[in-house]
Design a protein around this nucleic acid. Sequence first.
DNA 1: TTGTACGCGTTATCAG
DNA 2: CTGATAACGCGTACAA
Lengths: 328, 328
Amino acid sequence: MATMRDVAARAGVSAKTVSRVFNNDPHVLPETRSHVEQIMKELNYVPNVLATTFRSGRSSAIGVAVPDIVDPFFAAIARAVDTVARDRGVATLLTNLGDDPGRERDILESLLSRRLAGLIVAPVGVDHSWLKRWTDSTPMVFVDRAPAGLSADTFADNDEAGGYLATHHLIGHGHRRIAYVADTLRLSTETNRLAGYRRALTEAGIEPDDELVAAYVNDRESTEAAVTRLLGLPDRPTAIFSSNARSSMLVVHALPANELAVVGFGDFPMADILHPALTVIDQDPDQIGRFAANRVFERVDHPKRRLRRTTILDVTLIERESCKVARH
Amino acid sequence: MATMRDVAARAGVSAKTVSRVFNNDPHVLPETRSHVEQIMKELNYVPNVLATTFRSGRSSAIGVAVPDIVDPFFAAIARAVDTVARDRGVATLLTNLGDDPGRERDILESLLSRRLAGLIVAPVGVDHSWLKRWTDSTPMVFVDRAPAGLSADTFADNDEAGGYLATHHLIGHGHRRIAYVADTLRLSTETNRLAGYRRALTEAGIEPDDELVAAYVNDRESTEAAVTRLLGLPDRPTAIFSSNARSSMLVVHALPANELAVVGFGDFPMADILHPALTVIDQDPDQIGRFAANRVFERVDHPKRRLRRTTILDVTLIERESCKVARH
DNA sequence: TTGTACGCGTTATCAG
DNA sequence: CTGATAACGCGTACAA
């Protein structure tokens, strides 16, 4: 591993000159430059990014932290960020937070202590006030969910509107007994979707019924149990609003085909090939990722510029077939 | 951002003592230790990982580079690596390579120049000889595909056996005209699967027919075109072997339901919910990720230990319904 | 145009 | 057990 000094010694110049050549400083004689470049090639010189970052305090990488890389929604956000960052010659470092809120701080702090140029987080924790210490040294952007106990740039979907849209659409198809299926109800995204669901019902003169809300649907057993319970209800539902993609996949799997109408929150690969093809609320993770990445760079380039902190993105309904299943 | 010196000054000790406390060096008086710990808490001291890594040369992070994070196969590998690394208190930095072989080197070199403890790569490039320069400073493990022009630890699936298994299974269901659908034919994984396909045919006394091989199936149009061509053949196929998950999703989408029997290489979410549910060759990405991560740490802990370089993992056939579609 | 001195935050060495 | 000093590789400030 050749260092700058090695190159300098071999080229008969000072380390500083090598540095200048590498950073395209114009104040170098063309002949000196080409000579040094020659030696750099010979020695296969690669600058130690660590030393550069350490010295300058400015890193050329941004971090992305998401609850679960395997979730196509978060994967798509990450890829979009990577695309934007790469255009700028910036590397993207992705990390999995997992679903344990208690670990979030350790993981994020380990990322931050690498002195990244910026950080994009889809949080799982319940408190982010401890991040204040980092906010003036590292631009931070939250996606999917806003932070708790901290004011920061946020790009989130209009979950309430999405919940409303889905439910309203099912009501439009004549349904009045509509079940709500969720994973955890701890996160604000879920509670907002639930609120939208309730608003649509109330607006249509339907009394929300807590018996129709099934939470903690996150694996095959819990889904089977929830579906069985719902179908066994005396006044059983004719439709289901599944509030996240993972639950949607599970519900579609557990439900006898064409038994109930279904609308899911969050599109996923293959949703359009199912029988019946699943009607969904689309979140456009690609857009979220691009916005978040651009915001990070905007904060890097213009630290003082004043910008609206919170951006709520519209969601749209993609109508396919599952919403048209007839009421039994 | 308090530094070690700040803590040292406030605690009335030297920086080295703070360092010792932080690194649990036993040679510190308990009272000194608790006093320093107190101050560290007061000042919210977080060590600068960058400086530590820079100085010591030892990083506490490993890198993972995959062609596409959104592909559930690679995402699962990455998550498995992360799980193993976290148990060891090591952070995982994930990066997207994209499908441009030309960019691979830049991206990997940018990761390596951060002086990671190890690197796990699912390569997309055609030459990796340039990596030799890094191999003695950074343990490297390849997954999914072996490197080209470089000898390194590799955990790959038995692609040839998988291709054979799938084709043999279809032959067992009475098919003799079996099409082979692929994305690129550039990568060794694909050519090995193709070799297995040919071996199964030959072994059954069936002459491989190049007209039945459709390559470059990677988006909706190319898939439509390929399927139309295959179905229009005078002696048209009665079954398809799709050699990767992405092609499988596309083929299943483009094919009229129950028109041809299908077996796909690589399982994916929802494959079991399709109509008919897709029979697949399962690759167990979770196992690959765990193996790769453990190997990295083994190389870190025991640099001199001699280990078998290449590990070929068995694949299995998950029989569902799509292989049973009758011959028309 | 080029070079010298110094420091970023931490750890290794060696002395006390 | 504790501290002073040097060094990791590079960039900044200033001098030549």
